[in-house]
Amino acid sequence: MVLDTALFNLINGSAGRVAVVDSLMRLLVNDYFLPTALCLLTAALWFAGSSKQERGRNQRVIVSIIMAVLLANVVVKLCNLVFFRPRPFSVQQVNLLFYRPSDSSLPANSAAVAFAFAGVAWQRHRWLGVVMGALAGLFAIARIYCGVHYPLDLVAGGLVGSVSAYLVGKSQRALEPLMAAVIGVARRLYLA
């Protein structure tokens, strides 16, 4: 915890010094910019592929991402029921560049969701996993920089997301009927 707080102080202590960096971090930290980017990247993957079979594989990745994100959200909610860690701005002086969320700081829901995206993508497309992982990493750093999470919150959130992605990846056979149904409906609408 001491190391966690020290690392938080180091990163958050840099906030408010360089206006351009602050602006960039405020762009990255908000609830819309990176989540929208991750969702649109995922939506684009739906259409990728030179054949119907390749496209079908990519579309299964997207259904897996949705499942992993749902699982990660459920795990975070369950953790919040049994454990509450106050936000940094509630217990110490911070450079706050964001609004004051009221839910538990640990595990970080934002990191859980972002790493669930990246984790599933990594299992199927290394390059996309790297891109999404980098975006998730930026999201995490921005959250510390702006004073809304301790580093450990994000590590825990990242773990929740990655494990969710792994579990969904291991359950492909069980999820196949659902995936086939989703893709079947989309194909009827000429969208798959």
């Binding site: 405020r26 609830d31 819309y32 910019f33 969701v113």
Partner: peptide, 18 residues
């Protein structure tokens, strides 16, 4: 992102609503 910073930096939709 350029003109709606007041809304962006207020508590908004949760992940499912987003």
């Amino acid at each position: 992102f350029g003109t709606r910073s007041e809304e962006i930096f207020s508590p908004g939709p949760a992940s499912s609503e987003f």
